[in-house]
Computed example of a mutant assay.
Amino acid sequence: MSKKPAPSKRRVYGGIDAEQRVQERRERLLETALELFATQGYQNTPIEQLCSEARVTTRYFYEAFPGREALLLALYERLIREAQAAVREVLQRPGLDLAARIPRAMRAFVESYVADRRRAQIGVLEVVGVSPAVEQRRREVIREFAQVLEGYADSLVAQGLLPQRDYHPVSLALVGGINELLAEWLMTGSPGSLQQLQETISDVMQALLLGGAVMAQQAKGRK
């Protein structure tokens, strides 16, 4: 009977295997990119500086990411996924009426995406104009946020709280407006407080959704 080949051993140094080391270096690069891209700009941050600040050699940088743009996209994806998850969790939470759900969703968004100004700086400004690939992803993200709001609006239609219509264009316009509010907040020399920003975004959403609810009630009254 032939012997089974012995399982390959994972190389371990200092109690940490090679795969863990790769992940740790990747995390350090992401954290360094968050700081440098946000404070001095993506275009002004060379790979050599990223590696120096993250204590990673260029060899290991390219082991983790194909290039600087790939690092930016990976960071962007992380920020977006976390913000979307925070908003979706509130919008899907049972037991909240429409009036309470909107400001809580906006509070969750601000806390996830804006409370750390670096995150908003990258998600709103630093990804603009980098390359066609990054721009395509940025446009996809806007549509994804719009789909989250569209799904919520459709659920309100099913409950009779909003009139029946296609809410995709409206949701897209709403996300675009929020994006511009964030850009203005980031680029203003003396921005208002996070609470003011949150309240403004919440007001915009309520103008759409609560206004739609009034339209639905008026339509019922005319029948």
Rank of each mutant, 00 (worst) to 15 (best):
S2M: 12
S2Y: 00
A6F: 00
R10I: 10
Y13Q: 12
D17R: 07
Q20F: 00
Q23E: 13
E24L: 15
E27Q: 15
E31D: 10
L36S: 01
A38E: 08
G41T: 09
Y42V: 08
Y42C: 05
L50V: 06
L50M: 09
L50S: 03
S52C: 07
E53L: 06
A54K: 03
R55L: 09
V56H: 02
Y60C: 04
Y62V: 04
E63F: 09
A64K: 01
A64W: 01
F65T: 05
E69R: 08
A74L: 07
A74Y: 00
L79P: 01
I80D: 09
R81G: 04
A83K: 02
Q84L: 14
A86C: 13
E89M: 13
Q92C: 13
R93I: 01
L96A: 12
L96E: 09
D97R: 09
D97A: 11
R101I: 11
P103M: 12
R104G: 03
A108S: 10
V110C: 06
E111T: 14
S112H: 03
Y113H: 11
Y113P: 02
Q121W: 00
I122Q: 03
G123L: 12
V127S: 04
V128F: 08
G129S: 11
P132S: 12
A133E: 15
A133Y: 05
E135S: 15
R137E: 13
R137A: 13
E140R: 14
E140A: 15
E140K: 14
F145A: 02
F145T: 02
E150G: 09
L156N: 05
P163M: 09
Y167S: 02
H168A: 12
V170H: 04
L174F: 06
L174A: 10
G176D: 12
G177D: 01
E180R: 15
E184Q: 13
W185R: 04
L186E: 05
L186K: 06
M187I: 05
P191H: 09
G192A: 08
G192K: 06
S193Q: 06
Q196F: 00
T200P: 02
I201H: 02
I201N: 01
M205G: 02
Q206N: 08
A207H: 08
L209S: 02
G212M: 08
Q218H: 08
A219K: 12
K220S: 03
